[in-house]
């Protein structure tokens, strides 16, 4: 059996292996965005320095941070590559479509979000590039985004964010993307668990609604910050 030679290859190429990986990476990314979202919320905490301090502690993690970032990049790349591959194979699997097509309804979990995973996903990809450019690799201490806290000069991400989200493009562009993220998660959350084989009919009935809940939570949690910044400037 060809698998016996290199099982790892099989995992990456077989339909089931690929799903297990999208599931794993997907869940990992969900974990990341939730943490990220909570971190962002500290922008709005009473203490004006809270956000920058949070960012700094992240920075000071040093090697640990790099490890997580490398892991994160790995997850994204894997997730994207497989996601796109699954999509391409799907296109090849049905070359002639139907002139009419109707979902049979429950127990079907087919939905707008399940059908648009690739679109919402790719939008997220584009977003990510811009997003990293404007923040992570955006203007820093050298460009004057610097605050002094307890005598330390640190990057003033808070002001950077403030400046960005005072521009309508950012303030309203982000929410759009974040809603798409919500769609991605609406199907993604339960789907990942089904991909990992943990779902049973009874669990599905419970987890599927929870997926919706998580999606809304993450989206809302993210959205408040840009909108808060934008509207508190007037």
């Amino acid at each position: 059996m060809k698998l016996r030679e290199h099982p790892i290859v099989a995992v990456f190429t077989s339909p089931v292996g690929k799903k297990v990986l999208t599931g794993l990476t997907g869940l990992g990314l969900v974990g990341f965005v939730i943490v990220h979202m909570l971190g962002n919320l500290s922008y709005m905490s009473g203490d004006p320095n809270a956000y920058n301090l949070y960012a700094e502690t992240l920075q000071n993690l040093g090697p640990l941070l790099y490890l997580t970032e490398i892991g994160l990049v790995g997850f994204f790349v894997l997730h994207i590559v497989i996601g796109v591959n699954i999509y391409r194979r799907k296109r090849r699997a049905r070359t002639i479509g139907y002139s009419t097509y109707k979902s049979a309804g429950r127990p079907s979990r087919q939905s707008l979000s399940s059908r648009t995973m690739i679109i919402t996903g790719l939008v997220l990809l584009v977003f990510l590039v811009i997003h990293l450019k404007s923040f992570k690799f955006g203007p820093g201490i050298a460009d004057g985004y610097v605050v002094e806290i307890e005598g330390r000069q640190i990057r003033d991400l808070k002001t950077l964010m403030t400046h960005k989200f005072q521009q309508p493009l950012y303030a309203f562009g982000y929410p759009v993307v974040l809603i798409l993220l919500g769609f991605h998660l609406r199907h993604g959350v339960w789907s990942a668990l089904q991909s990992l084989g943990v779902m049973t009919p009874r669990l599905t009935a419970i987890i599927y609604p929870i997926g919706m809940f998580v999606a809304i939570l993450v989206t809302a949690g993210f959205i408040v910050v840009p909108l808060y910044i934008y509207f508190s400037q007037f």
Partner: peptide
């Protein structure tokens, strides 16, 4: 069986669950 399924050119599963419904 999974390898054969892929080799036949069927798509991968994205958990739409439409199959169970029909």
């Amino acid at each position: 069986m999974v390898d054969q399924m892929a080799a036949e050119g069927f798509g991968d599963c994205s958990n739409h669950a439409e199959c169970e419904a029909v």
